[in-house]
């Protein structure tokens, strides 16, 4: 048996050494980690806006592609642009504008909301006309494999492309995930996509939070539409 003093001294030394080791590692890796997190978000935004790289997603390529083509805008409730500033105020929303050769090629907004088993996170992209869907992706969710998790699949996501967000009167209707198939005779077929069979709740959740999120951006998007009209005249 060793003395209590020895035990305390030994434990202290081990703790200090381990603690030092940990903080040194954490500190030296922090920069790389935050770059990774940022790149991950950028990668998602680029892919929903239809940018694709022929080869692997290499870090510096993502970085340069993003810097060249994506414009981060902060908009508020009324739809006015506050400029590219970070803000924690919940009434301000980030929208990602993609540009190629000084022409706007689309907008992406973050979407999130409840699916069946947990919150689903993703991005939703809109064409420059601010009313046609350009794409949708999810980067995190907990849906059932084979059912709700089909939201990750190409067939489901491509159904959204080309759908309209607003009706002929110019008011927001969003895109609805229906149960089963969208019938071709449905007059509202432009606002509906085929559901995933067996995943009704996932579809319903998606419909709800997509509409909620779009509503937040609607003031800004409607301004874009008006501007577009004026330009085309």
């Amino acid at each position: 048996m060793r003395s209590d003093t020895y035990t305390i001294v030994f434990t202290t030394i081990v703790t200090v050494v381990l603690g030092l080791g940990l903080s040194v590692t954490a500190d030296s890796l922090r920069e790389r980690q935050s770059i990774n997190e940022e790149l991950d978000i950028k990668k998602n935004i680029l892919s929903v806006l239809g940018f694709s790289l022929s080869s692997e997603w290499e870090n510096d390529k993502i970085q340069s592609l993003y810097e060249q083509n994506i414009n981060e805008l902060i908009v508020d409730k009324t739809g006015s642009i506050l400029g590219p500033i970070e803000s924690s105020n919940s009434d301000k929303y980030t929208i990602y504008q993609s540009r190629e050769n000084d022409k706007v090629t689309g907008y992406a907004i973050p979407i999130a909301g409840k699916g069946l088993w947990g919150t689903m996170y993703g991005y939703f992209a809109i064409e420059p006309d601010a009313e046609t869907v350009k794409g949708i992706t999810f980067y995190r969710h907990k849906e059932t494999p084979g059912l709700g998790a089909e939201v990750d699949k190409e067939w489901f996501q491509s159904n959204f492309v080309g759908k309209k967000l607003i009706d002929t009167n110019g008011s927001l209707v969003s895109v609805e995930v229906v149960k089963g198939y969208v019938s071709s005779t449905d007059p509202k077929a432009m606002h509906k996509v085929d559901g995933i069979s067996g995943a009704t709740i996932t579809g319903k959740g998606l419909t709800t939070f997509l509409k909620n999120d779009l509503q937040k951006y609607e003031p800004y998007l409607s301004k874009v539409r008006k501007l577009n009209q004026i330009e085309s005249l």
Binding site: L147, Y181, S197, T200
Partner: peptide, 26 residues
């Protein structure tokens, strides 16, 4: 294992392709 057709919110029958409907419980 194969939930997409067996989860019980669409009817099962030997019918035309794409034919579907809701079961009484769904």
């Amino acid at each position: 294992s194969y939930p997409s057709k067996i989860s019980g919110d669409m009817v099962w029958l030997v019918g035309p392709d794409g034919y579907s409907g809701a079961t009484a419980l769904s």
